[in-house]
């Protein structure tokens, strides 16, 4: 069974974070929301594995 990688996995985390925020620069709230939705769909498609996606949905639901 594949498992969602919830360990730190991105090289250059500060760079990525900055890129993510930069992608939202100048966008209205509605445009940002739409951007996020497209991003989620693209990443989900890349992952593909339904088990991993289900775990990600579960993990994202958790607050604090």
């Amino acid at each position: 069974m594949s498992t969602l990688n919830t360990g730190a996995n991105i090289a250059g985390p500060d760079d990525f974070y900055a890129e993510l925020l930069a992608a939202h620069d100048g966008l209205s709230k509605a445009e940002s929301d739409a951007f996020n939705a497209r991003l989620i769909l693209l990443l989900a498609n890349h992952i593909g594995d339904r088990q991993v996606l289900a775990q990600a949905l579960q993990a994202a639901r958790r607050r604090k």
Partner: peptide, 20 residues
Amino acid sequence: RLFRDAVLDLAEHFPATRPM
């Protein structure tokens, strides 16, 4: 609606969301 529109927007350019 947000996700519906995102699926349609992406479908124009990528096969990824066309099945949705």
